[in-house]
């Protein structure tokens, strides 16, 4: 039953994809008549004006270009022409660094806050104010103080991924089932051992949910951050290709951003499943 449902769902997915590609293809077909103009003028005008080609690339153009990128993902022809693999690697490395730093800060801090009602109440106003700040708003301050655009991008990732993790850790730690704590108490388990043997495993699913939300946000923010700081990364690539008016490359970048984001999410989802135990 479930396998046949999967099969049918897969079929529907393929049909939808085919329909989308078909409509896209039809919508971006050449409009036919080309305006007559002098060859010199035609050179300046591009294919849209000379051959009546749509300004929007069709799926076939994107496919051909994507294949070109996939064949040579790591070429490096200077600052403005690097392979997509290199650009993605820059972005992933920035997200990874900022995110890991956030994990190192958010989880221990969240543990402390979750276990101490005093700290929880004392820090709450700060968290409530800092949490809704758009991470990009930190960018000028980061650039001014750090004076390094690449590290500033990492800082922006750090600051945006810390809040969901921190809040989820606090919530997970504070809402561990009372009876599990009581089990540890009746067994005279010390605070440190209790934190690692009861609270951490009990809060792990909630913490990992926070980490999953964070990685999603970090991946959203890196594109915008790299558009601002420039130089390298998939966000910079998107902006650079927009400046080149290469809509095909922009579409390819959008597709790849989606796929990488999905993969990051799936990795965290798998970790979450590994630490979740039904009762």
């Amino acid at each position: 039953m479930t396998s046949s449902l999967r099969l049918r769902a897969g079929l529907v997915s393929i049909v939808l994809l085919a329909a989308f590609l078909g409509i896209w293809h039809l919508a971006t077909r050449s409009a036919g008549t080309a305006a007559t103009m002098s060859p010199e003028y035609a050179k300046l005008m591009g294919l849209t004006a000379t051959q009546g080609k749509s300004a929007m690339p069709g799926p076939l153009d994107v496919g051909v270009k994507l294949w070109e990128h996939l064949r040579r993902p790591f070429y490096d022809n200077g600052p403005n022409d690097k392979g997509l693999g290199i650009q993605l690697a820059y972005s992933i490395a920035r997200v990874g660094t900022g995110y890991l730093l956030a994990v190192l800060v958010a989880i221990p801090l969240g543990f402390l806050i979750g276990m101490s009602p005093l700290l929880s109440k004392a820090l709450d106003p700060f968290i409530q104010v800092l949490k809704p700040i758009s991470p990009l708003a930190w960018m000028p301050l980061a650039l001014y103080t750090i004076k390094d655009s690449s590290i500033s991008a990492i800082f922006v990732i750090f600051i945006c991924s810390i809040w969901p993790m921190l809040l989820n850790t606090v919530f997970g730690v504070a809402s561990v089932r009372k009876e599990w704590i009581n089990v540890a108490r009746t067994l005279e388990v010390g605070t440190v051992r209790r934190a690692f043997t009861v609270i951490l495993p009990a809060a792990a699913p909630t913490i990992l949910t926070g980490m999953r939300i964070s990685i999603g946000i970090a991946w959203l923010v890196i594109v915008a951050a790299e558009m601002l700081v420039g130089g390298t990364g998939i966000g910079y690539f998107v902006w650079n290709e927009w400046n080149n008016l290469s809509i095909t490359n922009v579409i390819i970048a959008i597709l790849l951003i989606g796929i990488v984001g999905m993969l990051l999410d799936q990795i965290l989802a798998r970790f979450t499943r590994m630490v979740t135990f039904p009762e």
Binding site: E179, V183, P201, A202, F277, E279
Partner: peptide, 9 residues
């Protein structure tokens, strides 16, 4: 405990 309070992990 009434609800057995086993650690599910």
């Amino acid at each position: 405990f009434q609800s057995h309070a086993l650690l599910p992990w």
